[in-house]
């Protein structure tokens, strides 16, 4: 997993609520046996019409999308299927951070496990970030803060983050090493079974 400390990048806003993982990566792309290259198909049915032509009204098709590293999405982002292909497709497309007022449990776990920083913010800040579509903000995982442009210069907001997830992300640490280091405790549990 690639380490994450801080990032300044442009927002791409998808304000729709309840964006499910079938939208992020439709099931027909799940026969892949590797996660690499899924970015090509991210939001496939939002980006392409029935004839395979790009839809003009989809923000993901705007030239700026590929240079946007921060996705701000509507409430309850990533609901539905547990497919890890979804956060991988978003990362492969170029996102490093996902922000919403609510993120589905399994998606959030998956994202944090693979190095896609997923951040839950209060509704007021969420609404403001959605309005900053296309603008740059800064994310600092060390301090757990967002720097957001405001009328009187940048404003800083802190965000909650699971301490262990933060620790792993800052170091690019694979949790499997931590689990394997608990061999004695696992063995003891198994002896009691």
């Amino acid at each position: 997993m690639e380490a994450f400390t801080r990032l300044t990048g442009a927002i791409l806003a998808l304000p729709e609520e309840n964006i499910d993982t079938d939208q992020i990566i439709p099931a027909r792309f799940l026969t892949a046996t590797r996660f690499e290259g899924l970015g090509e198909h991210v939001f496939a049915d939002w980006r392409l019409d029935g004839n395979g032509a790009p839809r003009q009204d989809c923000p993901m098709n705007e030239p700026r999308a590929e240079n946007s590293s921060i996705l701000v999405a509507g409430r309850n982002f990533g609901c539905g299927s547990s497919r890890e292909h979804a956060p991988y497709a978003l990362m492969d497309f170029g996102f490093r951070v996902v922000i919403s007022s609510e993120i589905a449990d399994i998606f959030r776990n998956n994202a944090l496990n693979i190095g896609l920083l997923s951040i839950v913010v209060p509704q007021s800040l969420h609404a403001r970030l959605l309005e900053l579509d296309g603008q740059e903000i800064s994310v600092d995982l060390e301090a757990c803060t967002l720097s957001v442009p405001g009328a009187g210069g940048d404003e800083t907001f802190s965000f909650p983050m699971d301490g262990f997830a933060r620790h792993c992300l800052l170091r690019g640490m694979d949790r499997l090493d931590f689990l394997l280091s608990n061999e004695t405790a696992i063995k003891q549990h198994e002896e009691r079974l």
């Binding site: 776990n109 998956n110 496990n113 949790r175």
Partner: peptide, 10 residues
């Protein structure tokens, strides 16, 4: 409960 593929590996 459902898990992701990284966790399947774990």
């Amino acid at each position: 409960f459902g898990i992701g593929t990284t966790e399947v590996g774990y």
